[in-house]
């Protein structure tokens, strides 16, 4: 089932204003220092958050909650990658990572790798000065979801000894398909907010997403489906949740004067096939 194909675009109409300091990305210690971070390739989640709210006085509130799977926990299956297909990807004594990251539902039904964004009017996006690196290592992307602010630059890199190509499936940002021979890279400036799927045509299992957010208030859920977005001023917000396989949903979040909010639980489920329109 394919709810979000190459073509997903997310219209976040948030604009720019500044808010107080926060500790971001609750699960990953590394992402507290926003910017150049990367998780170990073995991690289940492999996500990276490159957005940070600007510190400000009123913004001491936070939104938090969980994205949970509605339905039976789907069985995890390995990607089918034959030896011939992965020739040259790994050393002779190593095995290629066959983990399928498209839908990760924990025992507690938490959905990892969902992107949560909150549109806040008049915010100035914090664009990291350094390039955000999306590397190809052992014929896998080193990150599965990259959450980057609009205006950032992504550097696609190939650290392997085999050639890859970077084929982006985007609609508003210029789509391209370039070969990256061993140890080379290519930069792309993100000019429109949307979700870009990145694939390699040579290794059909390779897939990653660059979520271009038009907001500083965004994060990716951890392996329990949990998320926390800090730095919000008191008020009522709509949190939008996107998942590569489950599609989109949204939830209301109210941050009180004291900066408190109730934890929200967001259910997502596999859509029935019928939702497609073909005509």
């Amino acid at each position: 089932m394919k709810l979000v194909s190459s073509a997903t675009l997310l219209l976040l109409t948030g604009l720019a204003l500044a808010y107080p300091p926060v500790v971001l990305a609750p699960d990953s210690a590394s992402s507290a220092e926003a910017g150049a971070v990367c998780c170990s390739p073995s991690s289940d989640v492999r996500r990276n958050v490159y957005v940070t709210p600007t510190p400000s006085e009123e913004g001491k509130g936070k939104a938090h909650g969980r994205v949970v799977f509605d339905g039976e926990i789907p069985k995890r299956k390995e990607l089918s990658i034959t030896e011939a297909q992965s020739k040259g990807c790994v050393q002779a004594d190593e095995a290629i990572n066959k983990q399928d990251l498209t839908l990760l539902v924990g025992e507690d039904k938490g959905i990892a790798n969902a992107v949560v964004t909150i549109a806040v009017p008049d915010q100035e996006l914090n664009v990291p000065e350094e390039n955000i690196v999306l590397d190809q290592v052992q014929c896998r992307f080193d990150q599965h979801i990259v959450l980057a602010p609009l205006g950032a630059t992504v550097e696609y890199r190939n650290s392997d000894d085999v050639p890859h190509n970077v084929h982006t499936y985007s609609l508003r940002n210029k789509a391209f398909n370039r070969t990256l021979s061993a140890q080379t890279s290519y930069e792309q400036a993100l000019q429109h907010a949307e979700v870009i799927q990145i694939r390699c045509d040579i290794h059909p299992w390779m897939s990653a997403y660059v979520f271009v957010a038009d907001s500083n208030f965004a994060t990716i859920t951890d392996e329990h489906g949990g998320f926390e977005i800090s730095g919000l001023a008191p008020g009522e917000y709509t949190a939008k949740i996107w998942h590569e396989k489950l599609g989109k949903t949204e939830v209301k979040v109210v941050v009180s004067e004291e900066g408190e909010s109730e934890a929200v639980s967001v259910p997502m489920k596999l859509k029935v096939k019928r939702s497609r329109r073909r005509r």
């Binding site: 073509a7 997903t8 675009l9 497609r276 329109r277």
Partner: peptide
């Protein structure tokens, strides 16, 4: 036409 968000085929 490009594919509409959430669908998997472009409109005819």
């Amino acid at each position: 036409p490009v594919i509409f968000d959430g669908l998997d085929m472009p409109p005819k």
